[in-house]
């Protein structure tokens, strides 16, 4: 445990350099001669890295614990799939459209949840996830319901058709880098500080002039936008999607990644994603106990290192936030 803490301190002090050094071997991944199965796992991890990074913006940085992230992932996937199947659009457009439509629903979900905090918010986002799944399941004309959408075309980046493992790998790598840079730049700015201040003390933030509605909506919309892009990639990559791929379980999985890796840390979220995608694969025989494993991981983390591997925020603190409503404000607000 001591060694772990020491390692983490070292990382904190040499962040930029370490991330750059990581990037070199990552760029070379397609040349390592991995099996197609392994490449698939790596690409899948990439998708989850984007999902975890985007949820981290909303949960780790802004303090809004959402169980609805899979819904945005699904909305992005369905939007892209439909656009590609019906209009044969290039991935550049389907991905942007997937992100925008997901972002729009993020905005819609953000609006009614403005005054909800902690567990109440989580429950509403959970409901949203379930509604989205039911719509996908029952809107037969659009989604073909439980049969799902098949034959989603390979992604095209303008005239370049992506069909090799290595190409998929580089495409997801580019998406990860774009997401990472965007979220990182956002966090280290006037907007990012406003988001973090909402996590830290919503009432004080408002008293310092932060428009809570505006910034929560920014967080919801941006997080949903990037989840939508991840969904778009997934749709083209898997060539088949159905409502089963975007259930509440999926939301839990993404949230677990953020909590394991560390809320409020991008590298932490990325690690969380890689770890939670690969461990169940390594323990093939334990596939059925996947959810149990997530539970165990979370309990162990909560006890040993509640801020996650690289994070600095504790889930418990966010779920038990200081009151923000007038009637709740203590007499010495």
């Amino acid at each position: 445990m001591k060694l772990l803490h020491k390692g983490i301190d070292f990382y904190m002090n040499h962040k930029k350099l370490l991330i750059m050094m990581l990037l070199v071997p990552i760029m070379a991944v397609p040349f390592f001669g991995f099996s197609p199965y392994m490449m698939r796992m790596i690409t899948l991890s990439g998708i989850y890295i984007i999902l975890a990074l985007s949820l981290n913006l909303l949960t780790g940085f802004t303090g809004q614990v959402s169980l609805g992230h899979a819904a945005f992932y699904g909305i992005g996937a369905y939007t892209s799939a439909l656009l590609a199947i019906r209009f044969d659009l290039s991935f550049v457009y389907t991905a942007i459209a997937g992100g925008l439509v997901a972002g729009f629903f993020g905005l819609l979900l953000g609006l009614p949840t403005l005054r909800l905090n902690g567990t109440y918010l989580s429950i509403v986002t959970l409901g949203f996830c379930e509604i989205t799944r039911l719509v996908a399941l029952n809107w037969m004309d659009l989604t073909r319901g439980p049969m799902g959408l098949t034959g989603i075309p390979l992604p095209k980046v303008f005239s370049w058709v992506i069909d090799k493992d290595a190409e998929f790998f580089y495409l997801i790598l580019i998406l990860i880098i774009l997401t990472w840079v965007a979220i990182n730049n956002l966090i280290k700015s006037r907007t990012g500080r406003a988001l973090i201040s909402i996590r830290e003390d919503e009432l004080a933030a408002e008293a310092m002039g932060i428009n809570i509605l505006k910034y929560k909506l920014i967080a919801f919309t941006t997080a949903a936008f990037f989840a939508g892009i991840a969904g778009s990639f997934y749709a083209h990559y898997a060539s088949f999607i159905d409502p089963q791929s975007f259930t509440f379980d999926e939301s839990i999985q993404i949230l677990s990644m953020v909590i394991l890796g560390g809320m409020g840390s991008n590298l932490g979220a990325a690690f969380g994603a890689v770890i939670l995608v690969s461990i169940p694969e390594m323990l093939r025989g334990l596939q059925e106990y996947r959810m149990l494993m997530y539970g165990a991981v979370l309990v162990i983390m909560m006890l040993m290192r509640p801020q996650g591997l690289l994070g600095n925020v504790k889930l418990g603190d966010i779920l038990n936030k200081k009151p923000v409503n007038e009637e709740e404000v203590s007499q010495d607000a």
Binding site: S197, L203, A205, G264, N312, V313, S330, D332, A333
Partner: peptide, 12 residues
């Protein structure tokens, strides 16, 4: 304003 019970942003 400031608050009677300090309300800073602790992890900032």
């Amino acid at each position: 304003r400031t608050f009677q019970n300090i309300r800073l942003f602790p992890m900032m």
